[in-house]
Amino acid sequence: MAPPIRNKVRVLRFGHGEMTQADLAERIGMTRQTVAAIEQNKYSPSLEAAFRIARTFGVGIDDVFEWVD
């Protein structure tokens, strides 16, 4: 079952010079496969990883992740 969290990682990547999954993965210390899993909502990152992603894009964590009821 997919976690009830949606994210805009893919959109933000494209908004930041079409950053690749591999580039983002390298910046946040994860594998490309984990970034892909996050984008597909198959994996919910830890709070620390979520902050790292948000900081990479220069936005708040709420701008990247949202809880879906």
Binding site: G29, M30, T31, S46
Partner: peptide, 11 residues
């Protein structure tokens, strides 16, 4: 590169 990197949280 992957071989040298530590396992990430999902792994």
């Amino acid at each position: 590169k992957e071989a040298q990197a530590p396992a990430d949280e999902r792994e």
